[in-house]
Amino acid sequence: MDPHTTVSILPLVGWALHGGILARRLACARRDPLTGLHTRAGWTDRAHHLIRRHPHAAVLLVDLDRFKALNDTHGHAAGDAALVETADRLRAWCGRNGTAGRLGGDEFVAVVRDLAAADLGALTAALHRPLDYGGVSLPLAASVGVCAVADLSVPVLADALAAADAAMCAAKGRGRRGSRASR
């Protein structure tokens, strides 16, 4: 190979490597390292797409109940196990009908294509099943708020999240068990 060709190819190889590294970093930034769910940024992109394409979509907000007590009583490793298990249960419930994400701490989010096809009772039951952690049964509970996008005057994700948050707070107020749809 001609030395001039080698010199002109080296910057291209460098830029290709740099681009690959940046692409991997971006992909990592869009996935939560603990649960593997989408982060807020990754989930938001998908949620906007689903809401635009599916008029019967719904946005859900999920918040673990008594999570601080679980962490304080059983340790942070048990808390991490509860977060991972919650993520797995939410991901399984969404299946091919939607996508789930972790907003941070013990707060999760999901969007599903068709609320009528989503079994909210099954989600609530799954999120309230105890977790076996090292031979100890850890109680899990979550409050779920739901907003059917069709109930909004304009199908905007920010409004759907606000309505789901209000519904989740109402569910927490009802005894920290179950789910509630916005009205």
Rank of each mutant, 00 (worst) to 15 (best):
M1Y: 10
P3C: 04
H4W: 08
H4D: 14
T5R: 13
V7S: 14
V7A: 15
S8C: 08
S8D: 14
I9R: 15
L10V: 14
P11W: 13
P11Q: 14
P11M: 10
L12R: 15
V13F: 14
G14D: 12
A16L: 15
H18T: 13
H18P: 05
G19M: 09
G19H: 14
A23N: 11
A23L: 13
R24F: 09
R25D: 13
R25Q: 15
T35D: 10
T35A: 08
T35R: 07
T35M: 09
H38T: 11
H38L: 12
T39V: 09
T39S: 15
R40V: 11
A41H: 12
W43L: 06
A47S: 11
A47T: 13
H49N: 11
L50A: 10
R52F: 06
R53A: 14
R53H: 15
A58R: 01
V59T: 07
L60Q: 04
L60K: 00
V62K: 04
V62Y: 05
R66Q: 13
A69V: 11
G75Y: 03
A78K: 08
D80I: 06
E85V: 03
T86M: 06
A87S: 04
R89C: 02
L90T: 04
R91I: 05
C94V: 10
C94P: 03
T99G: 03
L103C: 06
D106F: 01
D106R: 03
V109H: 03
D114L: 06
L115D: 12
D119S: 10
G121Q: 12
A122G: 08
A122K: 09
T124G: 05
A125R: 11
A125E: 11
L127V: 00
P130L: 12
D132W: 06
D132G: 09
G135A: 10
S137Q: 11
L138R: 01
L138C: 01
S143N: 02
G145S: 05
V146Q: 00
V146K: 00
A148R: 04
V149K: 02
A150F: 02
D151A: 07
S153W: 07
V154R: 14
V154A: 13
V154N: 07
V156W: 05
A158N: 08
D159I: 01
A163F: 00
A166P: 05
A167P: 00
M168K: 00
M168N: 00
C169H: 13
G173A: 12
R174Y: 06
R174F: 06
G175Q: 01
R176W: 08
R177E: 04
R177A: 07
A181I: 09
A181D: 08
R183I: 11
